[in-house]
Design a protein around this nucleic acid. Structure first.
Lengths: 199, 199
DNA sequence: CCTACCGATCGGTAGG
DNA sequence: CCTACCGATCGGTAGG
């Protein structure tokens, strides 16, 4: 009863989630021991089990806490721009900015793919779906003409764009020559909008 | 000295690589034990160390054996088509076909990202680079006009296209509604070539 | 290529 | 009766 809004228990729970997140993205799921999580969270190993029944339960909590959909969806929904082009550029810009603040998010996804066969992500995807559909309708309402491509495919291509940007910008940064990186965001969005061919 | 071209030792080595590959893509690197590999390869644990000095050395051998660049580069180099459009469609088609035969290849990549911080892939990338550059020069020589986009960015977008196709087609197959999948290859290539906007 | 084994560490649980 | 946690230890497995 004061300015403290989290109970002692909630604070410890959050400490565990934060600790686990930091270790998972560095060493992977199986590469991180419960002892390491405990020590990083400044509690005893046994103490973890007052908050989580198992290691996997911790991973699910980490995925939920650190998945950027919390931030991405509202931003994408409020993407501005009267024309399709402006709308897409704004949306891409926002998404890239969010992911810049969560450069390790993709590592979480990869762990999901490899070590859990994306069981948990599939559940998240179902939660997402209505928002994704709404977003694509927003896009279709902008001024300008879309080529006759089903909206779901437009979204898939957009996700591919973000992925491609991220992979080379973060994962392979340092590995690739400068020509691969200059103004890359602008160009990748440009290809998405107008393609590589001059009509 | 007969029809058998692999020595006994080479056969065992290959058994270990195959066994390890099957287990790695299922359970991840840290999720796979040396004992499991040994048993899958029908040898004793200690026997592995006659062929590999460490678990990581097995992973490198697996990555090298199962990385599809062996198949992809020659195919891409021989991609046909007089126009840019035909060339790109042919290249995308070939690449997707190769990856269909190696649906688990991306899992290997993810393991690399998460559990090795893509150390080994960076080395592979350096090996690749000259071929990639040559490929983009091939592209530029086709008949048709490219919009003024640096070739490296064109390649990045192309990789993003393949990635996006694969992710939704294999990783999330079954999780997504039908509208996300119909004719997706064709449409994704179409967006890459001409963009989403009608000019 | 195997049996036998090491120092250490694994995820999870005991009683208090 | 609850919460948050302890020191110690369980049965098995890790890479070597």
């Amino acid at each position: 009863m004061s300015e403290i809004y989290q109970s002692r228990g909630e604070l410890t729970r959050n400490d565990i989630i934060t600790a686990a997140y930091e270790l998972f993205i560095k060493y992977g799921y199986h590469g991180t021991s419960m002892r390491a999580i405990a020590s990083q969270a400044n509690i005893a190993l046994g103490g973890i089990y007052n908050h989580f029944a198992s290691k996997e339960e911790i991973f699910v909590a980490v995925l939920d806490s650190y998945h950027p959909y919390h931030e991405i969806l509202p931003i994408l929904k409020s993407a501005a721009g009267e024309t399709i082009e402006a709308f897409v550029r704004d949306a891409a810009e926002s998404m890239i900015n969010v992911l810049k603040r969560r450069p390790d998010f993709f590592n979480l996804m990869f762990i999901e793919f490899v070590e859990f066969n994306h069981t948990h992500l599939s559940k998240l995807f179902e939660k997402f779906l209505p928002d994704i559909v709404q977003l694509s309708e927003n896009l279709a309402e902008r001024r300008g003409n879309l080529r006759p491509i089903p909206l779901p495919l437009v979204i898939r291509a957009f996700i591919g764009l973000i992925f491609s940007y991220h992979l080379s910008e973060n994962t392979f940064q340092g590995d690739m020559p400068l020509e691969f990186k200059e103004n890359s965001q602008q160009y990748l969005v440009d290809i998405f909008l107008h393609g590589i061919i001059k009509d």
